[in-house]
């Protein structure tokens, strides 16, 4: 009788768990459905101009009536152009990635290979701790410490050093700007890139590294010839994971980006707007729109962000999986 009951329990628990495992898929599909529903009227109203227009305005809230354009009810003179935010998101994310990869590489090489003894654990722990710091704290620090430092020291210095290059030099548009946002995001994504590289490095069998050393190679030579070929593919995978994180970063960017609207950045020191920060920052204002179109427009921004991040994360996981299987080959000896 006990066996019968055990099997019943197994089946019930199994079905329950099976149902629960559908939850992530339901969530993702549900979110996507909401975003598409939200964005549809916006696309109908703006057409392709959603992606090409610089104008973001929720319309004249003091007008007497809403108007109907292309079958969609909006306040007069509303325009929902996402170009500024798409450019801002792309710029901050890619610039942060370019800065973060070398830093993460050194952190990983140091904490995973070159630095020995107790300092190694300390270094690895510190890098991981960086990932745990809430983004609002990065934002606050960025606003109070980094932004003035950029205005007073880093900006002028970079201007002197890089002056012929138009985008990297020029007048300071705003104390909170692209450069400050890039600095803050870089620090936030270094841990995930470093962790990905380090994970692959740590799976390399110790005897593989000893084989290099045993040939008379220095630690550095052994690193480049034995460790790097494996770590290399993790750099790509880790970068894309970091990119995914950077794309969605909201709070810190909101605090240090300058909340630009309707204008594209002239140089590193211009204020910018990103999709994520704009959704958060414009929410209050959007709620005042009686037609709700402003809110739908934020959802449309969300749809673009959602699509990009999902694709980037899928790509990252595929690449990281391939990197790890490369190391497995080494472990088994084919």
């Amino acid at each position: 009788m006990k066996a019968v009951r055990a099997r019943w329990i197994d089946r019930t628990v199994g079905s329950g768990l099976g149902l629960l495992s559908l939850a992530p898929m339901v969530t993702v599909v549900g979110l996507a459905a909401y975003l598409v529903a939200s964005a549809t009227p916006v696309f109908r109203y703006m057409g392709w101009r959603f992606f090409t227009s610089l104008q973001w305005a929720i319309g004249n809230q003091y007008a007497n009536h809403a108007v109907v354009v292309h079958g969609v009810k909006v306040m007069p003179d509303a325009s929902f152009g996402a170009l500024v935010f798409i450019v801002g998101t792309a710029l901050t994310s890619f610039l942060a990635l370019i800065a973060a990869v070398p830093v993460a590489f050194f952190a990983a090489a140091g904490s995973g290979y070159f630095v020995k003894g107790r300092i190694r654990h300390l270094l690895a722990g510190l890098v991981e701790m960086m990932a745990g710091i809430p983004s609002v704290i990065y934002g606050l620090w960025g606003l109070v410490v980094v932004a003035p430092a950029v205005t007073n020291y880093i900006g002028p210095w970079l201007n002197r050093v890089l002056s012929p290059i138009a985008f990297l030099s020029g007048p300071l548009g705003s104390e909170t700007n692209l450069l400050v946002a890039v600095i803050v995001i870089t620090l936030m994504i270094v841990p995930i890139i470093a962790a990905t590289i380090r994970a692959v490095m740590e799976r390399i069998p110790r005897e593989m590294i000893e084989s290099g050393l045993a040939l008379g190679w220095t630690e550095g030579e052994t690193f480049w010839r034995v460790v790097w070929p494996y770590a290399r593919s993790a750099v790509v995978g880790g970068s894309i994971l970091g990119l995914g994180r950077a794309l969605g970063e909201t709070m810190a960017v909101l605090m240090v980006s300058g909340d630009a609207m309707n204008i594209l950045p002239q140089n590193l020191y211009s204020a910018i707007g990103t999709m994520a920060a704009t959704i958060a920052g414009q929410l209050d204002s959007a709620l005042t729109d009686p037609t709700h179109m402003a809110l739908h427009a934020l959802g449309a921004l969300g749809l673009v962000l959602f699509t990009i991040t999902v694709m980037v994360n899928l790509l990252a996981r595929a690449i990281v999986k391939r990197a790890s299987s490369g190391v497995s080959l080494a472990e088994e000896g084919s």
Partner: peptide, 21 residues
């Protein structure tokens, strides 16, 4: 010099360790 030592004294390990080349 450790590198010189190791160029005179070679080593083979328990598991095959071919380089990824």
């Amino acid at each position: 010099d450790v590198s010189v030592v190791r160029s005179h004294i070679g080593m083979v390990f328990q598991r095959p360790t071919p380089f990824p080349k």
